[in-house]
Design a binder for these strands. Structure first.
Lengths: 219, 219
DNA sequence: CGCAAACTGACCGCCACCTGACAGGCGCCG
DNA sequence: CGGCGCCTGTCAGGTGGCGGTCAGTTTGCG
């Protein structure tokens, strides 16, 4: 398994790298976000370990941008900030898991193994929603057993609903999820994507809460 | 849930306070940071709503100081500054979520409910009234187990009754609740909405006190 | 019995939302 | 490097639900 480690603390970074290598995976270790961007653009990784405080920026916007591009590489956040808020914003941004420093290297191994099993092991966890079967790890959806192909944006949007079943999501919340901070969207792009999702997955999949937003339909 | 609202705009503050109260939470409303500091020192809150521009200082340093003291009370930022830097620094300072003014009060409710759910880890508290199950935070009602869809106005009206079970509410009180002060309503709109509510939720839900107003029926 | 208050079915204008069409952009492939 | 196809934001026209108004009827009280 190929792992991208983004961590600027040299001592901690080296320790993590060695641990992962000892587990039999290959590691690329970057200390800055721009280096990490280059690495992700040129190579395929099975897992990203992301520190939240890097010398050239924050991890959360980086992760959001990654997800907005449709990248579904599993990401585990490493944070020294033992604050619920950071973990929540991290998970909201699309992280798969998080570890609070200082953490036990054995625990890191366990989490990586879990991800590895999820991604290379045979059975992926499948979420079933009426006629829909969603494999979040494999980024695939089936409607009545037939595979449905979603585009990057559609997947990000759909994922947002599946991760919070039944919860109301306002348009602005969805825009945050789909677009990075600097993008200005003054249109009905969300409506259009919802419409396209309904066309592919069935009209009842996403319900409109007039004046408030959308939520996943109860099957 | 106890909410601390820190907002110096009197009109907006009052509107937010009323909305939170309508959701069944208790609110303390402060217009200045030093007042808020005192409030936080003397009482325990489950949520803080923080405006970023207060007359005696900025919200971000206030939030940072809060977190530095180890306080993990969830904080939602209210800001008129729709700027990348403010939002990022807000989240980085330890905010859990933010809302850009002007925002819909219903959206505020939804986010508060979301925060409440995340932190308690439990589903929302359900108010049971005979055959009715009301989830104020999720804005949902069930009649004999079957979900009933209420429109925006219907919900606001129903909420007013559920919040004060058994209490008499005059038409003018309800009009105040449904409409902003500048709106002129010279009709039987309240009667019509009551009628529609009874149709959806059962005739006995709301009782008429002829010449005085309405009250929630005893099941 | 008479009157006022309340009820409710119907109507209609407005606005949030939907959706088909289109074009710019980007990657891919020959 | 040029052409092609897919993705996705924008726009405009359509529509359907929401909610205020009205009118005819019913209810309750003196």
């Amino acid at each position: 398994m190929r792992v991208l480690l983004i961590e600027d603390d040299t001592a901690l970074g080296a320790a993590i790298r060695d641990q992962i290598a000892a587990d039999g995976h290959s590691v690329d270790w970057m200390g800055r976000l721009d280096e990490a961007r280059d690495a992700l653009a040129t190579a395929a990784y099975d897992l990203v370990l992301l520190d939240l405080m890097l010398p050239d920026g924050l991890g959360i916007p980086f992760l959001k941008a990654l997800r907005a591009r449709g990248d579904v590489t599993p990401v585990i956040i490493l944070t020294a900030l033992d604050q619920v808020s950071d973990r929540i914003s991290g998970l909201n941004a699309g992280a798969d898991d998080y570890l609070v420093k200082p953490f036990d290297l054995a625990e890191l191994s366990a989490r990586i193994g879990s991800v590895a099993r999820r991604y290379t092991g045979n059975p992926n966890p499948i979420v079933t929603l009426g006629p829909l079967e969603i494999d979040l790890a494999a980024r695939s959806v089936r409607l009545n057993g037939k595979p449905v192909v979603l585009t990057a944006r559609e997947w990000v949007l759909f994922q947002a609903f599946v991760q919070r079943p039944g919860q109301l999501l306002s348009k602005s919340q969805l825009e945050e999820r789909l677009y990075s901070f600097d993008q200005e969207i003054d249109s009905n792009a969300i409506e259009v994507h919802v419409s396209r999702l309904r066309k592919k997955l069935g009209a009842h999949v996403i319900e409109t809460e007039r004046g408030l937003g959308y939520r996943l339909g109860r099957p």
